[in-house]
Design a protein around this nucleic acid. Structure first.
Lengths: 388, 388
DNA sequence: ATCAATACTTGAAGAAGTTAAATATTCGCC
DNA sequence: GGCGAATATTTAACTTCTTCAAGTATTGAT
């Protein structure tokens, strides 16, 4: 049972995987509840759970106060032993690497950052290695229980092989990052696109828990979207998916660097906002932060730029809701440092453009720090332990 | 094995279902090829195939000329015995019911139509019943082998219960159409949204065969889209999905009846085209067909209406490609009777707005007669026999 | 204390798939 | 024509996973 558990692969009977992922993502659950939830007999759950308990991945919670209607033996819910295993997660940006140590439930136990001078492969690997050392130093738990490292970066990534096919901001092509980082750190490495990693984290450990379909939108220089449909992350046959930033929302809008016109990103991307704000204020050196300050201060013309941007983002989100009908949508990203300026405009625009019942889809709009992105990378590591 | 095969349910071991659907959708295949394709041992395929052969659903093809490199026992490919079972499929529109008889491979063997006076439930059921009789009359095969009827109509449908939650054009709400039609005809009935049914048919028996993800866009009065992602039809948590017609493509465009602005449908829907053409020509009684004639005849201003419409549709299709990255997209619908006027504009706009590799997604633009929609309904019946 | 209700466990039985060996059929070559 | 390599399919023994049915455990209510 679970033959390779010590070599880093968590393979067992399907029921065991199902039981473990359910307990992991949906908190303490009794065996009967699991059986109903998964369409298994309770005998199967008992049997599937035992080795997981023996290996220390699950444990029985003390029977809590009854909630049920009356008689009967109280349930002893199964819960994940979060400290059974720890995971490093690292988000790679153009000028920084941000890392965290997470437990099995994706709780952050330590975090660290290192700046990046040159984005060439070797320098990044070196800094990732040092960051891992820093994280080990900052981590007070059992270091021997850290066996996996997740890396997240933007671009076209092949998760199954750990290959970075193309990363525009690092100017990398076909870099076998997974293999290289595994050599450097001695850990089992998973590599994933950063937006997808964040989406996976929210799907398993955040607001997406229990949702059959789910979307996460990130707003920043680029505007991206991770999509979970029918319980699975969408990848796109040609490697393109979730490109919400390049949906047309205004046929008469500005040309976009992608070759299209009136794309969401060409209106609401950070660069587009800065360009428009410079134009409206006549200050060619205005920064994004200054534009935010002006808008918060009540500068009408700069506010209008954010209003339009929020409207474009809302249209993009409505497009996601109209096309795939996710259970809920989380809107986030660095750019949302200014989310007070966007929030209501995104909602208004979304509600107007969402078709019928699609407008019932709840929207969470909240900023996420880079540590959350690193946590997303760790979450992919957790997933790859559980569902190889 | 396959205990309920005679009562209308085709339930067997997973491998048997997998083998049968693969042979059904991907034509004659040898057992080894199936084993490789499905990740099974060839012994498992042999065992799974035997009862299917015994029951007459599959048969062995005579070994054809070798194609392989040389020696070895020639494969005896498994093929579906299409005449083992037949299916009725009926598409319900506001003023007509269109029906076909299909075999297991969704080949049409007979078709018929009946017009509809009043779209109330009873009248529709009566006409569907008569249409079924007409189809039986026109069908020269073994009538006892027809056990299933598929119904397709636009609106919000719960396929699992056969309930029509809401159908705008029939003004129905919460009609248990599946149960009623089963009583009336004595057949096992499946009910599905028409666009989804057509998508399912193309996915199993048309251009979508073998595609992990696939989209079908229908252009007409409404503009809709059926979506298959990760091999499964997308339904949308709140019942809304594939509403490509209500994506915003022009923030400065006309108001749409949905409450939004600049929706694809408000620019490229049949009604919108007629309205614009009337406006440009100053002829308030112009029909769609007349507008088509004018445009084909070179009327510049009416041509411009079609050009704009094609551009909007292309943007909508690009949105699908950018968000879910389907393997291929089929564009169709009644409105495409005028597809010569749209085709190049749809393609141009799609190619401009598709992001990066998403532009590699092949587009098929072709009209489909109503009989094809009825075939879609039958295809849903086939699917529900195979994968209950 | 006893009973009904609910949760969990156990062991036998069954289903589904795998492995390994046997069988079948062909081609190329002598 | 016979032989061996190559490939396809079948068979039988075995493994694994799950369910079923019957038991045990623990509680609240009477």
């Amino acid at each position: 049972m679970f033959p390779g558990i010590d070599t880093g692969t968590f393979a067992g009977p399907p029921a065991a995987t199902a039981v473990f992922t359910t307990v992991l993502t949906e908190g303490p659950v009794s065996r009967v509840a699991l059986a109903r939830r998964l369409g298994l007999s309770s005998a199967a759950v008992t049997k599937a759970a035992r080795p997981l308990i023996d290996l220390g991945y699950l444990h029985e919670l003390a029977a809590t106060e009854r909630s049920g209607p009356g008689a009967g033996r109280p349930a002893s819910p199964l819960a994940v032993r979060a400290e059974r295993e720890f995971f490093l997660g690292v988000k790679i940006t153009a000028d920084e690497v941000i890392g965290v140590v997470c437990d099995l439930r994706a709780q952050v136990h330590a975090s660290a950052r290192r700046s990046l001078d040159h984005p060439d492969v070797d320098a990044v690997l070196t800094e990732v290695g040092r960051l891992a050392d820093d994280l080990f130093d900052a981590f007070s738990g059992d270091r021997t229980r850290v066996r996996r490292l997740g890396l997240a970066l933007s671009g076209d990534i092949d998760r199954s092989t750990g290959l970075v096919r193309y990363s525009p901001f690092l100017h990398w092509r076909d870099v076998p990052l997974g293999r290289l980082a595994a050599q450097r750190t001695g850990l089992t490495v998973t590599v994933e696109n950063d937006v997808k990693a964040l989406t996976a984290a929210e799907h398993w450990f955040g607001e997406g828990v229990g949702a059959e379909s789910f979307a996460l939108v990130t707003v920043g220089t680029g505007i991206g979207c991770g999509l979970v449909v029918n319980g699975r992350l969408v990848s796109g046959t040609y490697g393109v998916a979730g490109e919400i930033g390049h949906l047309t929302v205004d046929a008469t809008g500005p040309d976009c660097h992608c070759g299209g016109r009136g794309c969401v990103e060409s209106i609401a991307g950070t660069d587009a906002i800065v360009a428009q704000a410079r134009d409206r204020t006549g200050r060619p050196d205005l920064t994004f932060d200054e534009a935010v300050t002006l808008a918060r201060g009540g500068h009408e013309q700069v506010r209008a730029v954010f209003t339009r941007a929020g409207g474009a983002i809302g249209c993009g989100i409505a497009a996601v809701a109209n096309l795939v009908g996710p259970t809920r949508i989380v809107v986030s990203g660095e750019g949302l440092a200014a989310y007070d300026l966007f929030d209501s405009h995104i909602r208004t625009s979304f509600e107007r453009q969402a078709f019928g019942a699609a407008a019932r889809c709840p929207l969470s709009i909240r900023p996420l720090p880079f540590e959350e992105w690193a946590r997303g990378a760790a979450a992919v590591g957790i997933q790859s332990l559980v569902v190889p």
